[in-house]
Nucleic acid binder design. Structure first.
Lengths: 191, 191
DNA sequence: CGGTCTCTTGACGGAGTTCAAAGCTAGTGG
DNA sequence: CCACTAGCTTTGAACTCCGTCAAGAGACCG
């Protein structure tokens, strides 16, 4: 499990084995059950989660009482509610395990201390957030550019493996439409 | 102009005056005319722009040939096409000055060298991107949560000053609908 | 002042939602 | 290992938000 994280870090920065051992002190391993929440609306988001295995999703409850998924995280991705995490304010989001999921957890205070002690990780997180920001920008472009149907077909083409891993109503929720409409689109496009 | 940038940096990290002088060597000041482009579709995004005064906007051309604005940057914000900038790949976006605008420019190579020489800025950019990412996440939430009309009313309430600074058709383009519909909404909500 | 941008108005159409109900699937306990 | 149930997926009809098109009214700039 930890080798996996080390391998991931190595893609961005040079960390000695000794340094890595110290770094791991700041993290904690957690196993989540299916549908277990690590963050609930109204709470302050106290931790950042690095997914080792499984899937996390982030969602909020809209006016009509439905769950609106805004993000998934799979292996080797970070998941947190960044705004609440950095400002330590109450969140409007839930973070939940879609399947049984294994995560590395780093709490806010540990995160600040870790970066203080290991400046090499400033570079790592700078690069991770830079990448995440770029991805969010492209996501916003897609939301503007494509119709709901096109979003689905695009997703189907780009992430066929991912589609197998989550139920359809979550895909619909992520793409911003209803399960009923997803059904209609799927019927129209063969299958 | 440079004091303004120094003041901005001071909000995130401690930089000595000497260090700051060296840092400024990596930047270049540029004055843009109204509607001047600093990035065009198909190019590789070679620079990151820090707005000192004025407004930049980023947009792409959609299938119907219309301009779809995805982002504005005002004083003390960075603007670039992050994906193209970090990967040095061709972009689908334009970056254009809405009004006459003054920017600090840092080219990709200078950026890499700057971070190498001044690790304190790793922390600065880590925090900036972390914040930008959090903002993008909230933006995505809004896009999912609100109807076009609600997006406008929300924007009207949150950014009344900004509305005065850009023409309405750009506001419509940013919010993802047509000028005609904006007109209708405005009529419906008084004045 | 003349022309080109920008903003408004109204009629019509279509993508996508809502609601209700029925069929299907998978997990759970007995 | 089967049966039952809760949750997931499909169907269809009515409705709504918002885009498109076309045309006119202002407004800004040389």
């Amino acid at each position: 499990m930890l080798e996996q994280f080390k391998k991931h870090l190595d893609k961005f920065v040079k960390i000695s084995d000794d340094e890595f051992v110290d770094i791991t002190q700041y993290f904690e391993l957690q196993r989540l059950k299916k549908k277990e929440n690590v963050l609930t609306e109204g709470q302050i988001c106290k931790a950042n989660y690095f997914v080792l295995d499984g899937i996390l999703r982030k969602f909020f409850i809209n006016e009509k009482g439905g769950q609106q998924t805004t993000e998934f995280a799979i292996e080797n991705w970070w998941m947190t509610e960044t705004f609440s995490y950095i400002n330590q304010t109450a969140t409007a989001f839930y973070i939940q395990a879609v399947h049984p999921t294994e995560v590395l957890v780093i709490r806010k205070q540990a995160y600040d201390e870790l970066l203080e002690k290991h400046p090499a990780l400033e570079k790592y997180f700078r690069m991770v957030y830079q990448k995440a920001y770029a991805a969010a920008q492209m996501r916003i472009k897609f939301l503007y550019e494509y119709s709901r149907e096109e979003l689905y077909l695009h997703f189907l083409k780009d992430q066929p493996a991912f589609l197998q891993r989550v139920p359809q109503y979550l895909v619909a929720s992520y793409l911003g439409f209803t399960p009923e409409y997803l059904s209609e689109i799927r019927k129209k496009n063969l299958s």
